[in-house]
Design a protein around this nucleic acid. Structure first.
Length: 959
RNA sequence: GCUGGGGUGGCGGAAUUGGUAGACGCCCAGGACUUAAAAUCCUGUGCCCUUAGGGGCGUACGGGUUCGAUUCCCGUCCCCAGUACCA
């Protein structure tokens, strides 16, 4: 240890040691409990950003904590190395995507190592390497066999000028990002994974992880899947004048239960006209007697088929509505309902009533069947529509009857009341809380004006009417989902090739397993135009049919990169396996992942896809569980202050350091000027280089050190909050380390002379050695009560051990740092000189330093190793000594005296010191005899005295 | 609009889940050391009143429950995120 804290020197020293000894390489070890700590893998862009630093610092803290707690910790990292930027670099700068990617990986690995993250580098994977994507293809073939991979025609964004497909992002604003020409749609045959086949499981299995996942993530996934329970009902369409021409409703049209797997759900492509009827999806079949119209989307087949018979007015309205959809101007909140009566009539199959068929702009072809029955009496949107066009409004439910479900209110309010007995669809419901109970109220009124159904309750009617419809062939109960199948085809080079071959005689033929991987060629013509670059490489696509051996053509599309991130963390378990993606035995030991940490932005898509993938792996027999991640933590973004002015429509960004700001009394920025005197606008935005608000992690490490950077990024805000980066804060972290350094330096000689001693291996002779006995009995020389300052220091140490442990278990990182700072401050304030110190005092200091070093490890491992080496008396540090998290002595962590506030009529008046073990009556007596208390209560009637043990005393007086 | 999460000093944030509001850090002010500065150390720092002792107010706002509310309930306002008429 040097006298001064030199971050760079000690960080290099320990990083070298760790690397040499393979300190963080994990192996199956049944003697220890395992812990799998995972962070979302980075895309190798070439530069780490502060978001990564935050994410990986948090993950590393957990990994270290668990290691110190005696777990066998797996903490791997890899690279999500397929994707757009590499291909863009190839198009723009002619570089080879593979070389570009490998260089970036090298650069970023260096950055991660300089941060001192405790990764097991021996397990590193990278998606773009054939040994990895071979198994993307392996999984594809499995799913193809299982009927989970299929091909269908779908629309993609298409740029006519570039002859290229575009992602939604590249097509945003309706213009091509590259050539700025308008984007059109094009039909393309694409491969899909049938995620919808697992829709119910994806929804229902959320219950298994409810305790470990953030509520809002669960909620968002639930909405994304969007299950709604209801019924399809067919309305027969009358031709022209409304004369009753009987067509038998077809049962086939309703025969595909979506539960059995997926799209196309009933009816194909959202819905349609089958044998002259309109199919409608409703969650409120019980209100069908209140229907006053059928409202369909402008693109609905019945409209398309009858176009020739419509009047000019109708045709114009249709084109208006379609135009409005193509060019969604201002659909912020209140899109105005619009529509027109087509003159067509449809028959309500329950009542026989003839209903007008309207076109409505609020009905979407993409959802359900593209047609709704309009029930203005019981649906808000239908109500608006009916009011605008003066359609009749009928009520068919008495809404005075309710069902009430009472449940215990959980600690978190009402969130635990999830078991709602009748499904969430349909009826309006509300939740109330009364006292200790939650009450659900659902309108479950009785039907009226509903023919033979009148008098039944909504809940019964829903079931019975759907069954009736099914029996009579004009409908059925059904569940629909918002979730769609996952389109994985990409017309790109830099992804896993899809292992499919097209043969003129055999058709679509899967590649044989033994021929995997289907390897990407070294390079291809990168123009950014035309179809996939692979379609221009005959050496790639020319092949022979695995079935008949005749010449055939490979699929030239590659897979979505989300495929790679679906299972990468299983590959870490067995990265060298050439036969299987990973061995089930290894998965059995290491998975499911104990803790996953990553950006909030992946809360839905990535996590739904990987959950889906896990269920597929389970069905293949690779894993034996439903859910891959036990505990999830989503971290907030790191944002920076951005200053800019707008010149000629383009933003120009200024670094915060070039800007002078004026703040108002509340600290808000009122005015910002650039160095050249221009007025600037101010915003807080996601960090990026182009905005001039980015922070380079390497620079931080160079100036302050990795340890300080890591401490600060975790200390500055709770991990799930957004973090606004202010550089001044990081200096506080450095000062903390420096202060600690100074005090340890001061004591180093004194504490080195004592051997390291734990509570459980200390000899029985306690006379001079002021150590803790195994039973927790305290030596008077260092006990909080009798040990003077040394006792107080020990107490602080153990209180800190308690707090830090609890914080880690709760995945809080900012509060334990604060606790460590407090302990460090207590050590600094311990005003004994080492020279004249008693053994008890030296021991107390040594114990504090040891505890501090160990508890600091998850945040600042390099400094911690160095500090621990002082206490250990050897140069080995924490890893080499296989040190453990400091043991808590609960007895020591207790207060020997506590302050009891005394309230009089709710106001804090007096504080008195008492023993924590004082019994209530004694405390009451002591309080009532207190002089100051006497002053307050003198001459008043004492109504009540409330004693809260160990907390406070509250006196209520009158007069 | 709906759903979810929030609103605490000049700032980031603590608060054992109904029991001393503002831990810890940043910023700022004063002092010590220094020829000086930096660094370091010490002191102060929610607001208002008061010479002091002390008192009053205070967790977005208005009510309520309670001996006691940042915490629970009702209402209002505002912010952030997700979503886009989901039938």
């Amino acid at each position: 240890m040097d006298e001064k804290y030199f971050a760079k020197k000690i960080e290099e020293k320990w990083q070298k040691k760790w690397a040499e000894t393979g300190a963080f390489e994990a192996d199956v070890d049944n003697a220890k409990p395992r812990f799998y700590q995972l962070e979302m893998l980075p895309y190798p862009s070439g530069n780490l950003h502060m978001g990564h630093v935050r994410n990986y610092s948090a993950g590393d803290a957990v990994a270290w904590y668990k290691r110190l707690k005696g777990f066998n910790v797996l903490h791997p990292i890899g690279w999500d190395s397929f994707g757009q930027p590499a291909e863009d670099a190839a198009i723009k700068r002619g570089v080879n995507p593979r070389e570009w990617t490998e260089e970036n990986i090298n650069a970023m690995r260096g950055q991660l190592e300089r941060l001192g993250l405790s990764y097991d580098w021996s397990r590193q994977m990278a998606a773009h390497r054939p040994e990895y994507y071979k198994f993307d293809q392996w999984f594809f073939l499995k799913m193809y066999e299982m009927g989970l991979a299929y091909k269908k025609k779908t629309q993609v964004n298409w740029c006519e000028t570039d002859q290229a497909t575009l992602s939604n992002e590249q097509a945003s604003g309706g213009i091509c990002w590259r050539c700025e020409n308008p984007v059109t749609k094009k039909d393309l045959e694409q491969w899909f994974f049938k995620t919808t086949a697992y829709a119910d499981q994806l929804l229902d299995d959320m219950a298994e992880v409810e305790a470990g996942w953030p509520q809002n993530v669960l909620k968002r996934q639930k909405d994304w899947i969007g299950r709604s329970e209801g019924a399809f009902v067919d309305f027969k369409v009358l031709s022209g004048t409304g004369s009753s021409e009987t067509t038998t409703p077809s049962v086939e049209a309703t025969a595909t239960p979506p539960q059995t797997g997926g799209e196309p759900e009933r009816p194909p492509e959202g819905g349609t006209l089958n044998d002259n009827h309109i199919s409608v999806f409703t969650t409120r079949i019980d209100t069908i007697y209140g229907a006053n119209a059928i409202v369909v989307a402008a693109e609905h087949p019945i409209i398309v088929e009858n176009l020739s018979s419509f009047s000019v007015d109708i045709l114009q309205k249709i084109s208006e509505i379609r135009a409005e959809k193509l060019n969604p101007t201002d659909h912020e909140t209140d899109a105005v309902k619009d529509g027109i009566d087509t003159g067509l009539k449809a028959v309500n199959p329950f009542s026989g009533e003839e209903l007008p068929v309207w076109i409505g702009n609020y009905v979407m072809m993409e959802y359900g069947t593209g047609a709704v029955m309009s029930v203005p009496g019981h649906d808000e949107r239908d109500f608006e529509f009916a009011k605008k066009f003066d359609l009749p409004i009928r009520t068919v439910i008495e809404s005075d009857e309710v069902i009430i479900v009472v449940d215990k209110v959980s600690k978190n309010g009402l969130t635990q009341v999830t078991d709602y007995p009748h499904g969430h669809s349909g009826g309006e419901k509300s939740v109330y809380s009364v006292g200790n109970e939650a009450i659900y109220v659902e309108n479950n009124g009785r039907l009226k004006n509903s023919g033979e159904w009148s008098g039944k309750t909504s809940i019964d009617a829903k079931k019975e009417m759907a069954a009736f419809a099914a029996v009579n062939g004009f409908g059925e109960a059904a569940t629909t989902y918002r979730l769609r199948d996952w389109g994985i085809s990409r017309q790109r080079f830099w992804g896993s090739p899809i292992p499919i071959i097209y043969c003129d005689s055999c058709g679509v033929v899967p590649e044989k397993y033994e021929n995997l991987p289907v390897e990407l060629p070294d390079t291809a013509p990168f123009t950014g135009k035309g179809e996939s670059p692979l379609a221009k490489v005959p050496e790639f696509y020319e092949t022979t049919c695995p079935k008949c051996g005749e010449p055939a053509k490979r699929e030239t599309d590659t897979m979505d990169t989300f495929v790679d991130s679906c299972w990468y963390y299983f590959r870490y378990l067995d990265p060298k396996n050439t036969e299987m993606p990973f061995s089930p035995e290894k998965a059995d030991y290491w998975t499911p992942v104990d803790q996953y940490i990553g950006g909030d932005d992946h809360a839905v898509m990535h996590l739904i896809y990987t959950r889906f993938w896990t269920k597929v792996m389970r069905d293949i027999g690779l894993v034996a569980f439903n859910e891959p991640v036990k505990r999830l933590l989503t971290q907030g973004m790191v944002v920076g202050e951005t200053f800019f002015n707008e010149e000629g429509g383009k933003k120009k960004y200024y670094l915060p350091t070039d800007v002078s700001v004026t703040r108002d009394a509340k600290g808000k920025i009122t005015e910002a000027k650039s160095a050249d005197g221009k007025m600037l606008k101010y915003a807080i935005e996601r960090m990026s280089k182009s905005k001039g608000n980015g922070v380079d992690p390497d620079e931080m490490i160079e100036i302050y050190g990795a340890d300080a950077a890591r401490i600060f990024v975790l200390f500055a805000a709770p991990i799930e909050n957004e973090l606004v980066w202010h550089e001044s804060g990081i200096e506080g972290a450095v000062r903390f380390l420096q202060r600690l350094w100074r005090v340890v330096w001061k004591w180093r000689a004194a504490i080195t002379t004592h051997p390291i001693t734990r509570s459980d291996d200390h000899p029985a002779d306690e006379a001079s050695a002021p150590l803790l006995k195994p039973g927790g009995e305290l030596n008077p020389a260092t006990s909080p009560k009798t040990g003077g300052d040394a006792g107080k220091l020990r107490q602080k140490t153990h209180k800190t051990i308690k707090r830090v442990g609890e914080n880690f278990e709760a995945l809080q990182f900012n509060t334990p740092v604060a606790a460590l700072m407090e302990l460090s401050n207590a050590l600094t304030e311990f005003k004994v000189e080492p020279d004249g110190a008693t053994e008890g005092e030296v021991f107390a200091v040594r114990e504090a330093v040891e505890a501090l070093a160990l508890m600091l490890t998850p945040f600042a491992p390099h400094a911690a190793e160095e500090l621990y080496a002082v206490v250990a008396g050897n140069e080995n540090g924490i890893v080499a000594n296989d040190a453990r998290f400091p043991e808590l002595n609960a007895e020591l962590a207790k207060n020997d005296e506590i302050e009891i506030p005394v309230q009089v009529n709710g106001k804090l008046r007096v504080k008195i010191m008492v023993s924590p073990d004082i019994i209530d009556d004694e405390l009451r007596e002591k309080v009532m005899n207190d002089e100051k208390v006497q002053e307050y209560v003198a001459g008043k009637e004492i109504v009540k005295v409330i004693v809260v043990p160990r907390r406070l005393v509250s006196i209520v007086i009158k007069g």
